[in-house]
Design a protein around this nucleic acid. Structure first.
Lengths: 116, 116
DNA sequence: CATCACGGTATCCTTTTTGACACTATGGAC
DNA sequence: GTCCATAGTGTCAAAAAGGATACCGTGATG
């Protein structure tokens, strides 16, 4: 998706928009969602999210980390071990995620053709 | 923003993603937000949302309409009069919008540099 | 006659995002 | 010696989104 994020700091709009810009990105929401249940390793996320490419997953994780929503922990091992988990800030997004989930569940149910 | 929306119906992911895809788009959230307070005409929206171009506003409104979130009413007058208002479905998004607003208010406050 | 307001369209161009694919290091298993 | 797994990175190209600008019809106004 095109992005809401105006990467220019300070100039953006209201709180809602800025919040949206953090969870906007093709896979961020799913990632946050999966992490709500607990820490996951890179390849665990890949397996949980079919269709995401390595490159995209890396990018999204980096952005989430830069926004302080997730924590990345690297263990100096071979083969490498990297774990991702929600930060306190990320976890505080739970109400937003849940509001979206509930809306989707009730409004996009069976046939999502209520549009038009 | 890049879009979450995979315009291919049926194949998408979970409820959260599909919900996000509806409010994703550089101006949709603001539009929905403004409309929470009541019906507005095209140029009223333009004036309320600085920086949006006519083309983008039209696009976003059309998508919101196609998704059944807003209602477009045309009055056969000259000069033209077109009013936009939230549909029941659109209004039901209020909790999502509010959850995002609250999160933004408390987490992106003064300095939004908690990241890193 | 020229201009304005309204609510758009149409066209072109740039930027942003996403995807495909190849490549890397290292230690252990075989 | 070869292959595997992990967690990436780099490059290139395609697709999507967004922005700039110009144009349209009509009735009222001056």
């Amino acid at each position: 998706m095109p992005r809401v994020s105006s990467k220019v700091p300070g100039v953006q709009g209201c709180a809602v928009e800025r919040t949206l810009s953090l969870i906007d990105g093709k896979w961020k929401i799913v990632v946050l969602y999966k992490l709500l249940r607990g820490t996951l390793r890179f390849n665990e996320l890949r397996r949980l999210i079919p269709n995401v490419t390595q490159r995209m997953l890396t990018h999204q994780l980096r952005e989430l980390e830069a926004d302080g929503l997730i924590v990345r922990t690297v263990y100096a091992q071979v083969p490498p071990r990297v774990e991702y988990s929600l930060s306190a800030r990320g976890r505080s997004l739970e109400p937003v995620l849940m509001a979206m989930k509930e809306w989707g569940d009730t409004n996009l149910s069976s046939q999502e053709a209520q549009a038009a």
